[in-house]
Design a binder for these strands. Sequence first.
RNA 1: GGGUCGCUAGCUCAACUGGCAGAGCAACGGGCUUUUAACCCGCAGGUUCAGGGUUCGAGUCCCUGGCGACCCA
Length: 512
Amino acid sequence: MSAGDLEGAAAQERLARLAKVDELRARGDDPYPTGFRRTHTCADLRREWDGRLEAGATTDDEVRVAGRVMLLRTQGRLVFATARDGTGDIQYFVSRADLGPEAFARFEHDVDRGDWVGVEGTVMKTKRGELSVRVRSYTVLAKSLRPLPEKWHGLQDVDTRYRQRYVDLIVNADARRVFGIRFAAIAAMRDLLARRGYVEVETPVLQPVPGGATARPFQTHHNALDMDLSLRIAPELYLKRLVVAGFERVFEIARVFRNEGISTRHNPEFTMLELYEAFADYTDMMRLTEDLLVAAAQASVGTTVVEWEGATVDLTPPWPRRTLLDLVEEHAGVAVHPSQPVEELRKVCDHLDVPYEEPWGPGKLVLEIYEKTTEHRIAGPTFVLDYPREVSPLARAHRDDPTLTERFELIVGGRELANAFTELNDPIEQLARFEAQARMKELGDVEAHGVDTDYVRALEYGLPPTGGLGIGVDRVVMLLAGVGSIREVILFPHLRPEHQHPRPEPDGSGPR
RNA sequence: GGGUCGCUAGCUCAACUGGCAGAGCAACGGGCUUUUAACCCGCAGGUUCAGGGUUCGAGUCCCUGGCGACCCA
């Protein structure tokens, strides 16, 4: 990699560090050696010695540790360096008396903040009580060429934080905290499902008929087969094929792709936990949702009461269960039902200032009224039950009302965190639902569900009664970490290209 | 898609109503044997996001564009 992105002082500094690389090599020291055998991590050192050494104590305990130099304090013939590894940090106590004048001068000159440095020495505690390694010899393990951001304020520029997440993670403890929560939450959910006998599976990302959600897919092309494929918008239809196959409990932590705008709530690729359980229905899925989120919260933040977007969210179960229609009546002040004629519902929309489109049937109109007037006001956690059948092409009709489905969404802070239903397992009805979606697609709905005839064929072999659940992992992590933007919980979020200078048009008018 | 705000040294930020582009950290040179964002002295570092315009004079005002943040749809 060239330094084409560096100018001025930064380029100068990089050249100075490259000169140090050359000097190391000239002396026979590899600035990028093959390895370093360490005896302890920083956490090991603190665990074994921190409690039993007094300030000023020295030992003969030999250790080898390695870390990135995060802070350097030189004090005449002493250097104090704070080094950090994956477990924590430790101070290197570097003394001219211990190293000898030549090696000491080399250390002062060679080592910059940001370098990876391994040391060999003895464990001690300074007069001020800081556990340290008294360094007898050191090895540069990886010479850094670029300076780290300011040591106190860290890296603040959000654009750079996302583009160079590695730097963000080096210098910003809060970024490390957020991703620690993410990894712990995912591990906890995976563990809980494994303990309950769920099998983790992998299903196709490249799909000929993207299904399982209403969303625009990314299109791609397989050259050898000369066929168009889509990146999956959900793993749902493949996971249910596996339930047909006899896997009674399956799940996948699936990266899915939706060709939509980018915002604080949307990234074009995000992570869903989807699971299916034979002989369960959506009420079982509610209990499982509670169990999963409580496990994730306890494992990652140690509590089920969290602060999010200025509100306190109490995840202690059970969570309220409210029907969508009741909630609309409560928040919009109108009783609606998908059995009403379209004309009546359009009048309600006009009254509530909810825009609608010509092809929408009563179910879609009811959903739109809910989303525009009610959903964002639900603090939650609340299970919103019984969505209209017209907008739920994969969910089983409600046992008490055929215009509705046995489906819920979990809403917290006005946002959908999970979506679940008693699965539709009647192949004839599924085909009819697909065909209704296909008609919507013909009328211009780019998000309408495609007809997956192989999925219908699978259903014809018999899908047992099944409950299914999808959890928006990124949004759950946002909740647990208390952050407002999905970009804060995705390691490498999508951004526009970094360097894009306007290219003058031939007529001189510039880009549009 | 619309609106508001932002972009100044590698990083974090100043620069009043249009009037000499600055500080701290980092770097570089020097001092300092118990520091914790160490400290002290010195030195260097700029296409003020890009392009155009107004003006005696633009970081600052206007226009176009880029990137980002926030709000709305």
